Computed example of a mutant assay.
Amino acid sequence: MSNILSSRLIILGSGPAGLTAAIYAARAGLSPVVIQGIQPGGQLTTTTDVENYPGFREVIQGPWLVEEMQAQAEHVGTKMVWDHINEVDVSRRPFVLKGDSGEYHADALVIATGAQAKWLGLPSEEHMKGRGASACATCDGFFYRGKKVAVIGGGNTAVEEALYLTNHSHDVTLIHRRDSLRAEKILQERLFAHPGITLMWDSEVVEFVGGGQPEALVGLDVRNVKTGEVSRLEVEGAFVAIGHHPATELFAGKLALDEDGYLKVETGSTRTSVPGVFACGDVMDKIYRQAVTAAGTGCMAALDAERFLAEVEFEALEAAE
């Protein structure tokens, strides 16, 4: 592979975390290179209305926000590259990334590859995304004030989202395909004690039902897994809360991962198990998963990387004297 691009800092991923890291790194004079993957812009590009990003009184569009971040990053000196990376070597510096279109060498690496929400995989679910079907109650719950909503799942995330939605809705139904929850006991106790939450046990969603003009979610067809009976649950919002897939396949066996596959970082920093490699955004954050928190950790990663490179260069100068 003859096409080799070398940089002091490479940022893998172009969502809010990666682009914020690029902005800070470029302003620090690191001339970063951002490699955009299969989904440039991350999950924000699939989010329509964004109403909770600081600085905007009106509802803004996710793709527009990403475009503005990218334009700012390029304006201050970031180079954007589109490629799909399929091999990474972080065993020695410079780190080597191999993609479909070229090879990349970096003195420091920021990983901002994100995570994808797990969905049920129903065609009707895909059709209703952005029309009542969501995978983030914190992001979208505000739009369902005073409306009937449902949460699908049985783990910590599902229970937390159901409890959160009671801030906006007086009628929340948790749908779970088993007869017991996997969530922590303390969360279960809070859930069972809440008068605004109803549970549907031994049930699975088989259809997201749309209606009206413009079309929006009006209900869910739910099947009892024991009896096979299908019933209609009238709701205007449905939140799928069955987990996320962090995009860490490239780093398995090369960087420390936690039990859920997220990149491990040192507490209070973005440093991974390999010096010079940093992680930010949803690839290392399985708790908050917000655009603003991703951007915050992107800032941290750029500052951590700048300090690392300064220390390495200082040590090299001392050794040369």
Rank of each mutant, 00 (worst) to 15 (best):
V265S: 03
K254V: 10
I242S: 08
V240T: 08
E259T: 12
S231P: 04
L255T: 08
G253F: 10
F251E: 03
V265R: 03
E236K: 15
V235F: 07
L233W: 00
G268N: 08
R232S: 01
L257V: 03
E249Y: 00
T272S: 11
T272G: 12
T267Q: 11
A256K: 10
A252F: 00
R232T: 03
D260S: 14
E266Q: 14
K264Y: 03
S231A: 08
H245I: 13
P246Q: 02
L255P: 04
L250G: 07
E266T: 11
G237I: 13
T248R: 02
T248C: 08
L255K: 10
E236I: 10
L255E: 08
E249G: 06
S231R: 02
K254T: 02
V230F: 00
E236S: 12
A252E: 08
H244N: 11
G261D: 01
T270S: 09
G237K: 14
A241I: 12
T270L: 05
A238V: 04
A247K: 01
V265D: 05
R232K: 13
A238R: 15
V265P: 11
A256C: 05
S231C: 04
D260H: 11
R271K: 04
V240H: 09
G243V: 09
L263E: 06
A241Q: 07
A252T: 14
R232Q: 05
E236M: 12
L257T: 04
S231K: 01
V265G: 01
G261T: 08
P246G: 01
T267D: 04
F251I: 15
P246A: 02
T270A: 12
R271G: 05
F239N: 13
I242D: 01
G261M: 07
L263Y: 00
K264Q: 08
E266P: 07
D258P: 13
E259Q: 10
V265N: 00
K264C: 14
T272M: 10
T248E: 05
G253S: 06
L257N: 04
E249C: 01
T272I: 14
G268V: 10
G261V: 02
T270H: 00
A252N: 10
D258I: 10
S269Q: 07
E236Y: 11
T270V: 07
A247C: 05
G253I: 15
S273Q: 08
S269K: 12
E234A: 00
F251C: 11
A256T: 14
E249D: 06
E266L: 06
A247V: 15
R271P: 10
K254N: 02
V240I: 15
G243Q: 02
E236F: 08
A247M: 11
P246Y: 09
F251L: 14
G268L: 06
H244P: 03
G268M: 05
T270K: 09
L250C: 09
E249P: 07
R271T: 14
I242T: 06
V235S: 06
S231E: 12
V240P: 06
E266Y: 00
D260Y: 02
